Amino acid sequence: MNNTFSDCEKLYRAVFPASYIQMFWKKDGTISSAAFSDREGLSVERGNFRDDKNVIEEMRKFFKGCIISLTVGQCKTVDAVVKYKPSSRSEYHSEIHGSETTPLLSKSQRKHLAADAKIEYYEA
């Protein structure tokens, strides 16, 4: 794998459920823009065209809570930058940054990505 991403590649993010941190969820059960705020860059797992079930199963070994997804194309639509950053825990680890020089996503970027996010797995 490298830093080249296809627009249709999925990115998965673990998010605490509302029962643990309410600010990550709206009252209607959709994801809040607060779930997309990280000053270090938004940590995600790249799908690399693996089956959703397999990615979710692997992520649940390390994360408790919910798993949401976006596509690289949705990130590009809001001018966010996806960076491949493998870690000791995962060769699929990547980050979404607000720009090439700023890791934090802007309020507008967070709002749009939250609206686009798909809930893949919900653990109450």
Rank of each mutant, 00 (worst) to 15 (best):
Q109A: 06
S99E: 06
S69N: 10
A35T: 02
F49A: 02
E45T: 03
S87V: 13
A35E: 03
G29F: 02
E100T: 14
R60L: 08
G73E: 11
S90I: 15
T102H: 05
L105K: 02
A34Y: 12
R60Y: 01
D38Y: 07
W25P: 01
V78E: 02
A18C: 10
S69A: 08
E58K: 08
R89Q: 15
R89I: 15
G73N: 09
G47T: 07
S87M: 12
G41R: 06
T71K: 06
S106R: 03
P103R: 03
I31K: 01
E45G: 01
F62R: 10
K64W: 00
K83L: 15
M23K: 13
K76P: 04
F63G: 00
F49C: 03
R13I: 11
E40Q: 10
I67M: 05
D52A: 05
S88D: 15
I31T: 07
H97D: 12
E58H: 06
K64F: 01
Y92A: 15
L104N: 06
P17F: 12
P86G: 15
A14V: 06
A18W: 11
C66K: 05
C75T: 09
Y84S: 13
N48L: 08
E57A: 08
T102G: 03
N48Q: 11
K107N: 13
S69T: 10
H97K: 13
S87N: 13
P103W: 03
D51Q: 00
S33F: 03
V78K: 03
A114K: 08
S69P: 02
S106H: 04
R46A: 08
D79K: 13
Y20I: 12
L113C: 05
S88R: 15
A80F: 02
R39A: 09
I96H: 12
V78A: 02
K85H: 10
P17I: 13
V81E: 09
Q74F: 08
K83H: 14
T101S: 14
V72C: 07
L113A: 07
I56H: 00
Q74D: 10
I56N: 07
K27P: 01
F24M: 00
H97M: 14
A18H: 11
Y84P: 04
H93W: 12
K83I: 14
R50H: 07
L104P: 02
